[in-house]
Design a protein around this nucleic acid. Structure first.
Lengths: 204, 204
DNA sequence: CAGAAAAGTTGAACCAATTCTAAAATTGAG
DNA sequence: CTCAATTTTAGAATTGGTTCAACTTTTCTG
């Protein structure tokens, strides 16, 4: 086992993702025709559908990579957070937001979000929900960490606060990608302003 | 002006919406073919596209009606809210949620949300964003009202709190419609739990 | 190594949304 | 009342994602 066939498979996966990434960025999600992706990946249309259930799942694979990078980058902040609650949240959220447009354009984000609500049970839909869950957990972990070092009151409902912060950030991010003109600094400022209220409520 | 042609136009609009509503509920958004909607509305396919830019805009018109009803129902709560912050929020949010599945199925909501992120500049996308804005404003109005009657501290950032509450509720609602098994009481309980933190922070 | 089984590939055909253009209906000026 | 301009309708043609049956390639068995 794991001979030629395995290697070819991995190679085709990579070629499809590479082709899709460049075409999505170049012509947008809708503009990138499956036929063109197949041609650039040097694979037939049928093969693409053998590897991915539908066009959305190809985008899904790209989004997954991006979000996993973001999660990784966030680990450092959770491990040793800035020494006050507001800055800690702002730093973690800053990492999420600043990394978010590295590989994915706003248009790609919009499509990804749309597909994940439209088809919550498709492979991508489930993966996207899991990624949201992982981000929520990371924010919760930060809150727990801040409780450990006595920056956050130990009697507050940490999980609920974490989810509240994530949900608000996520919704703000959704609105952000919906407006092509929206800028990152303004987004971060708006979220800071909202979080200030929570910081006041949960800080020691 | 405004003779036969106007009346026919209004009539066709109504017939299309009626046909679409019943077919969407019966066969789902994807299952309801434009051809079938046209047939049931006794209109041609071309006519439908003359009245609505695309299939999504038809759904959009239905969503608009639904959300406007919800907004109307909310006015009463803002005018004379329950006498404590937690109950006031719970009542308003309760109205939103309990009314939300009257005309629209979860599947229809998923489609509507997906389209509004996918095509934020289409007529429907803009209308949907405006509706979200109206709901946010209503929650903000409730906060302002509670400040007037001294249930909420006057020095808190009302608009930011209102947006935070809306964003969290909306995100919870999105996850709710994504899971066919999710139930309204659990959704409301989860939102109450999250809002409790805010209530503690802003209450007098 | 030969040949059968398993796994994967291919692209033409299918389907439903959307576009397009010729035909029909309505309006308003004279 | 008539007819040219304007608006609207009809439905065939187009488009692009997805499916499927026939064909290849790889792996396994004796």
């Amino acid at each position: 086992m794991s001979g030629l066939r395995e290697r070819q498979k991995a190679d085709r996966h990579r070629r499809i993702i590479d082709a899709a990434t460049s075409l999505f960025r170049e012509s947008g999600y809708e503009g990138a025709k499956i036929e063109a992706i197949a041609a650039q990946a040097e694979v037939s249309i049928g093969t693409i559908y053998n590897y991915y259930q539908n066009k959305g799942d190809i985008l899904g694979a790209i989004v997954s990579m991006e979000v996993n990078e973001v999660l990784n980058a966030g680990r450092g902040v959770v491990a040793s957070p800035p020494a006050n609650v507001g800055d800690a949240l702002d730093t973690l959220i800053g990492i999420y937001i600043e990394h978010s447009l590295n590989y994915l354009s706003k248009e790609m984000w919009r499509q990804a979000m749309a597909i994940s609500t439209q088809l919550p049970d498709s492979p991508f839909g489930q993966a996207y929900t899991a990624l949201d869950g992982a981000l929520t957990d990371q924010i919760r972990a930060l809150i727990a960490r801040l409780q450990q070092i006595d920056l956050v009151r130990s009697d507050i409902d940490g999980p609920a606060v974490g989810e509240l912060i994530f949900n608000n950030m996520n919704m703000m991010f959704i609105e952000f990608v919906k407006r092509d003109g929206a800028r990152i600094p303004e987004l971060r400022a708006a979220i800071r302003r909202q979080n200030r209220i929570l910081v006041a409520a949960i800080g020691v």
